[in-house]
């Protein structure tokens, strides 16, 4: 449960992003204003091609924006040099993708340890922490399995463990349930919901999946490059 009185983890102001040049130029984000607060799970919904993934990539600092500015956890991300932005991303953000993007040659524990290895944490320590994180997502008995020997739901849980292992304050999820069946999708969202409830962390989820809308605190509707409305979601058991 969050309120607008919580500090903003993400502030996007007048964000514009276009691809291509001349006649083929397509403006995907047309002046986005958005705030995401600590302790909340924000759902980013809207029609395909509306700019959801582009906005997510811009917030993560993977894509440069053309106009406007984006602050993440008080850091002006859009003006940071690429190298510092990458380091900042590695230290403060976690990513979850529709296709999991696990490294197929690595075991579950090794996959989860990768963000720690990137932060130059020694391998034994990184693996120890990775196994603890896998325990937290219910996969302690699958630590030495390679992804192809895990089910889709298990792979996504490994991806979540990987996204959480370096204690990120911003968790960015792009269609995390799209490749999963309904039951597994619900479990994954329960896990993300639990994570998002942490008061010093927030979760942004891009999704088309209406079955998981009730897991969000707020839902922003992005259509044709603009946020057309943001609504608070009525939680179960609340009036």
């Amino acid at each position: 449960m969050t309120t607008d009185s919580q500090p903003a983890a993400v502030r996007a102001h007048s964000v514009v992003k276009a691809f291509g040049t001349g006649d083929t130029k397509v403006t995907v984000l047309k002046g986005i204003d958005l705030e995401v607060y600590l302790g909340e799970l924000l759902l980013l919904v809207g029609e395909s091609g509306g700019g959801k993934t582009t906005l997510l990539s811009a917030i993560a600092g993977i894509l440069d924006i053309d106009e406007g500015h984006i602050d993440v956890l008080g850091v002006p991300l859009s003006t940071l040099p690429p190298g510092k932005r990458t380091t900042f991303r590695g230290q403060t953000m976690g990513f979850i993708y529709q296709q999991f993007n696990l490294l197929p040659a690595l075991t579950a524990a090794e996959n989860v340890a990768v963000p720690l290895l990137i932060q130059r944490i020694r391998r034994p320590e990184a693996l120890r922490r990775a196994r603890m994180m896998l325990d937290r997502v219910g996969l302690v008995d699958r630590t030495e399995f390679v992804p192809k020997n895990l089910s889709g739901g298990q792979q996504q849980r490994v991806a979540i463990a990987r996204a959480l292992v370096n204690e990120p304050r911003l968790l960015v999820c792009d269609e995390p349930t799209a490749a999963l069946d309904g039951a597994n999708g619900q479990k994954i969202m329960e896990l993300l919901r639990e994570v998002g409830r942490s008061p010093d962390r927030c979760v942004i989820v891009v999704t088309h999946d209406s079955r998981i809308f009730h897991f969000g605190d707020r839902m922003a509707n992005l259509t044709d490059g603009r946020i057309v409305n943001i609504e608070r979601i009525q939680q179960e058991g609340t009036a």
Partner: peptide, 16 residues
Amino acid sequence: LRQFGALKAMGASTLT
């Protein structure tokens, strides 16, 4: 490339 893209998103520098 897809795997390298994921690593980059996780904070791996271009040099790494």
